[in-house]
Design a protein around this nucleic acid. Structure first.
Length: 254
DNA sequence: ATGCCGCGCTATGCGCGA
């Protein structure tokens, strides 16, 4: 089984890249982030020919937005992370497919909005931890894929690319990422000894390979036992008019 | 220490992304 994630940075602009990724890597389930469209603008009809079933969660104002494409039957189990009724941002989509709970996330960046924006990121991570614990306590196989906006360690970014106070590497943020790992989740790439970059700024960064590892797949223990491989689709990042993120995928034994 | 890109928007500069 192949699970994948792709921050498209506008689904309407990146529709051709999405099609090519599906053709190249044929994921069973693919989570998308940064749709930058409203729910009704998601190109469901354009993608119908791919054979994937879809569920999109857009947002007014062209911000955020997450979706899932699946060729396995699935049920939507959550369209928001519990714990903050005032949070109406489209950043969390959870499904159950093949007996596995899977969450696609677009974790807040935390660099904008001043102290309140950073605090929102920390609270969001604490809510994600609570949701993770609830699933693990119930012995539900659980996978989290998406744009975490966290470089977990110094091996996960080009040296000197970010200031130590940046919200992607801030100690308080890394601490909360580690709490997810301590709860029982396995960082799939790191478990395979890989720290591949998944994001490069527009401009010369990709050619110079000055990037960040911020897109991750986290697996509950029973899924980690099935971990067979992890990959980053560099071709998608090398194409014309790319997203600033590359798609990632994780392979699990059937 | 940073947005020189890229995207969306009741636009024609700004906020945001990382």
């Amino acid at each position: 089984m192949r699970l994948a994630s792709f921050n498209v940075n506008s689904i309407r602009v990146r529709l051709p890249h999405l099609r090519r990724f599906l053709a190249r890597h044929a994921p069973d389930v693919l989570f998308l982030q940064e749709l930058k469209c409203r729910t009704e603008q998601f190109p469901t009809a354009d993608l119908a020919e791919t054979g994937y079933a879809m569920h999109a969660l857009g947002q007014a104002g062209g911000r955020n937005g997450v979706a899932v494409l699946s060729r396995l039957p699935f049920a939507v189990t959550a369209e928001a992370l519990p714990g903050d009724p005032a949070d109406e941002e489209a950043r969390y989509l959870e499904i159950e497919a093949a007996g596995i709970r899977m969450a696609g996330i677009y974790l807040p960046n935390g660099n904008s909005g001043g102290a309140a924006g950073f605090a929102f990121k920390l609270r969001w991570m604490e809510r994600l931890l609570a949701q993770t614990r609830a699933h693990l306590d119930a012995f539900r196989p659980f996978a989290i894929l998406g744009d975490f906006n966290v470089c977990p360690t110094d091996a996960d970014l080009a040296p000197g690319l970010l200031a130590p106070t940046d919200a992607l590497v801030h100690p308080e943020v890394r601490s909360r990422f580690r709490a997810l790992l301590w709860s029982g989740m396995t960082d799939a790439a790191a478990a395979l000894g890989q720290h591949p970059f998944t994001y490069w700024d527009y401009g010369p960064a990709f050619e110079a390979n000055r990037g960040l590892r911020i897109d991750h797949a986290l697996l509950s223990p029973e899924l980690a036992e099935r971990l067979q491989g992890f990959g980053v689709d560099l071709l998608a990042r090398a194409e014309e008019q790319p997203s600033d993120h590359a798609p990632i995928w994780v392979d699990l034994a059937d």
